[in-house]
Write a protein that binds this DNA or RNA. Structure first.
Lengths: 205, 205
DNA sequence: ATAAAAAGTCCGATATTTCGGACAATTAAT
DNA sequence: ATTAATTGTCCGAAATATCGGACTTTTTAT
């Protein structure tokens, strides 16, 4: 489970309070006091979520939002709004914020939102990982001469058979449906040694 | 994007109001008035989320929650609680509810929660699909005789070469590093016909 | 309509692979 | 320590695959 929460809050007292809150819940707060300071942490594969105040000097929460969205559209941003500032909160959501939290914040509510956001982030990252893995598998366009490709596959098949049979050549040959001599022929050609597939430590002496 | 929302609400007026709300937002409400009625829709791969009232005769929202969790732990359930019934809401979340919504419901707030829940559901389902695909690929333990496995692979390689070259045998042969005659030998043996790999409609006449 | 190119087929000499038998070297079991 | 089984290597005849040439048929381009 992801646990990082990048906090962007200029009010030192509030910021420390939040940090303490998160630490109590076994999360990993990263405490910053401004967009500028937080900026370098906001990367595409950040393994966590962002919790930012909206009203801040120089750069406000919307700047954070815009920047983070550019870096990674699926990075959940939770914005801290003033009490019952519904208009701003709504705008934030429309702009792509994951959720908002009214100040003064309620601990339980913050945790609910954060856990949802962290889970969301985890799903997104896992999804990307799966997608990448699948793409990698599919894009391996078979290349090279027929003989090369066949030899590669032959090696794989034979090695697997040997592995399954713990390096016993006669058994592997049976499994492959060829006489052991023939298997030896192949192994010689491919420079496969059966010994390499036997248990090094079957029983401790 | 997923759009189904299974509504479980015994108050007819409120239920219809919600249905209307969702239809306005281009979602697909499934309207039911009781757990019993909704039950059959709650399946493991339900492509949507559940929005259920808590306080209902016979079976309440927690029954829905328990049942749905058993069917699919990653199926988001949003519970409708009475106004500022914080205790119940908190319990619901602890029990695995995705979120809760206070009655009387605010349209914007409902939509925010639903869109998050639907997105969450979509990610979960996508994740499962990816995982299944990867598992399927990995678990294909090579079995059968050496000759069989080699022939299968040979077929794959040749067919891919033909596909890439649009069914042109001479080109495919070049790509595979063998004389075209030899490729014909292989194709004859494997009963592969080049025609099958040519564009049926290269240019519209 | 004609020419050029590619698709398919068949043949046969040459090259490679298969596979059983035989045997020495190891390893495991009694 | 002796036996039995397994490993690993070599041999050679039979089976199979390769590959170029020749030829007919079909497509494609002009």
């Amino acid at each position: 489970m992801l646990k990082k929460v990048l906090i962007i809050e200029d009010d030192t007292a509030l910021r420390n309070s939040i940090v303490q809150s998160l630490e109590l819940e076994d999360l990993e707060p990263i405490s910053t006091s401004s967009f500028t300071q937080a900026r370098r942490s906001i990367r595409s594969n950040f393994r966590g979520v962002i919790l930012s105040d909206i009203k801040m000097p120089v750069h406000d929460g919307f700047d954070v939002l815009r920047f983070a969205q550019a870096r990674d559209p699926d990075l959940p941003i939770i914005l801290l709004t003033g009490y019952s500032d519904v208009a701003t909160a709504t705008k934030a959501l429309k702009d792509g914020a994951y959720d908002y939290l009214e100040k003064p914040y309620d601990h339980e509510r913050l945790m609910d939102i954060l856990s949802r956001a962290l889970e969301h982030r985890e799903l997104v990252l896992q999804n990307r990982a799966y997608r990448d893995e699948l793409d990698a598998q599919k894009s391996k366009t078979a290349t090279g001469t027929l003989a090369e490709q066949m030899e590669m596959h032959e090696r794989k098949v034979i090695e697997q058979a040997l592995a399954v049979e713990n390096g016993k050549v006669v058994e592997a040959a049976k499994r492959l449906g060829i006489p052991r001599n023939t298997l030896y022929d192949h192994m010689t050609r491919l420079r496969i040694v059966a010994k390499a597939f036997r248990d090094k430590a079957p029983t401790a002496k």
